[in-house]
Amino acid sequence: MSDIEKASAEAVEAARQGDQFAMMLAAIQAAKESQPAPCQHHQAPAVGGSAGKWVAIGIGGSFLAVSLAVSVVAFAIGAVALTVCVVVLRSVWADFAANRKD
């Protein structure tokens, strides 16, 4: 291999390495640009609200109130049923005790 061919091969190899180096630098630069920059401004808290939020709160509160009322009514019905059951059992027990003594 002559000196010219050797130099030519080295020049081709150097160019290939230079292209690879340029591609690596471009990839690094693209990665840096794709990262979001940190936020530098301060956002003020939202003032006021939309009417939809208040309508939703009202509807939710209404459902809560209705469910609470139904629960209280169910508890009252259970208490009345228990009381009637106790009174009937007391009467039956009194009749049983009276018949047992005779």
Results as ranks from 00 to 15, higher is better:
K32C: 07
Q17N: 07
V72S: 03
A26Q: 04
E13D: 05
L64A: 14
V66C: 04
A79K: 05
V66I: 13
G60S: 11
Q43I: 13
E33A: 13
G52E: 15
A31Y: 03
M24F: 10
A94F: 12
V55H: 11
A81W: 11
A26S: 04
I77M: 07
D3A: 09
A46F: 09
C39E: 15
H42V: 07
L89I: 07
A15R: 10
M24P: 00
F21Q: 15
M1V: 00
A94K: 07
C39T: 13
L68D: 02
V84T: 04
H42W: 15
F75Q: 03
N99E: 15
V84Q: 05
G49M: 09
R100M: 14
D19E: 11
A15L: 12
A94I: 09
C85A: 13
V87P: 00
A46G: 00
M23Y: 02
R16A: 08
F21Y: 05
K101N: 07
M1E: 11
Q20D: 15
L25T: 02
V73M: 11
V84S: 02
C85N: 04
Q35F: 12
I57D: 15
S8N: 07
A81N: 06
G49S: 12
F96R: 08
G78I: 00
A9K: 09
Q35L: 14
E5N: 08
H42N: 07
F21L: 13
Q43P: 01
G60Y: 05
E10N: 03
F63C: 13
A56H: 13
V80N: 02
A94Q: 05
Q29H: 09
D95P: 00
A69W: 09
F63A: 14
S50W: 15
L68Y: 05
N99H: 10
Q29L: 05
C39D: 07
A37G: 01
G49N: 08
S71Y: 10
A79T: 03
A31T: 02
Q40H: 08
W93H: 02
S34L: 04
L82A: 09
E33Y: 05
Q35G: 07
V86M: 06
R90W: 14
M1A: 09
A65S: 02
H41D: 10
V88D: 03
V47M: 12
F96A: 11
G48T: 02
Q17V: 14
A81G: 04
S34I: 01
G58V: 01
D102N: 08
V72N: 00
R16G: 04
M1Y: 04
A7C: 06
A44W: 08
E10D: 11
A26R: 00
D3E: 15
A81H: 10
I28E: 12
A31K: 04
F75S: 06
L82V: 01
E13I: 05
L82Y: 14
G61Q: 01
E13A: 14
L89R: 06
I57V: 06
Q40K: 10
A22Q: 04
D95L: 08
I59D: 12
S62M: 15
S91E: 12
Q29Y: 07
W54S: 07
P45T: 10
W93Y: 14
N99K: 13
H41G: 06
A11M: 09
